[in-house]
Amino acid sequence: MAELVAVIASTHHPFYYRASTATGEDRPPFADEWVRKVEAFRETLTRARPDVLVMVGSDHFHQLWLDNMPQFLVGKAPYYDANWYNEEREFGLPRMLFTGQEDLSSHVLREGLDAGFDLAFSNELRIDHSITCPIITLRPQNDLPIVPVYTNIFAPPLPRPKRFVELGRTIRQLVESWPSDQRVAVIGTGHLSLELGGPRQFGPHGPDPEFDAKAVEWIAGGDIEGCLAEVTLDSLHAPGNATHGFMDFMLMMGVAGEGQKADYVDTYDLFHTMEAYFTWYPRGGRS
């Protein structure tokens, strides 16, 4: 069976690419430290020597729209083009092309359906910065095949937080039951507290540093129970109107498992939002 060699949860800050490649006067003062942190984080994936990446993210009204909105969707295609015109425009993100791991996509879809998740699928998916950002930060050579998994954290009605955790647990089971000798890393990205298009946006730090501190503690300690006890669809409005993206972190806690402390934790307080980086090694870093 396939081996789950790393579980990684991260924020996906669309400005990293531009900040990290800017030079001279255009380079923001926080860029060097940010690059240092990202490169250290990258090393946690590199050392796991993955062959395949399952990438959990959320389409930001790019391909998925309100006339036909899936809650959870798995890509199954030989290739995925990536990044959209409005992401080039606003964030300076480059066009990218990924290779798909169709066999694992098929396995996740078939077994996921049988496990109680009515997963939607896509055979032609153009993916967005929720997946390209972690490739840029964690695997910039973009040399590994992927299985994209999209969640709806964006267009209510949304699945409840518990459902995200359950999907994470299921994804782990599906990866570990994939008849293959491949080494798989699951990487998911979301947000801590975040406000977009509201009065608390683009402040000197994230809109709710208290929530951020608590969230980092939940994730780092694998405290799914504590997190689920406090986080609801309603409660997530309070830290910022885009904070439902935190549910993708909860999904990743489900992949990592209850009570599993992260092996690597780092954060970086930036304007607008706090960056947060977590890695678990399910086998304690062996193999």
Binding site: H60, F61, N86, L196, G197, G198, N241, A242
Partner: peptide
């Protein structure tokens, strides 16, 4: 209106 769409 969806704040992300408006903002973008």
């Amino acid at each position: 209106a969806h704040p992300f769409l408006t903002l973008t």
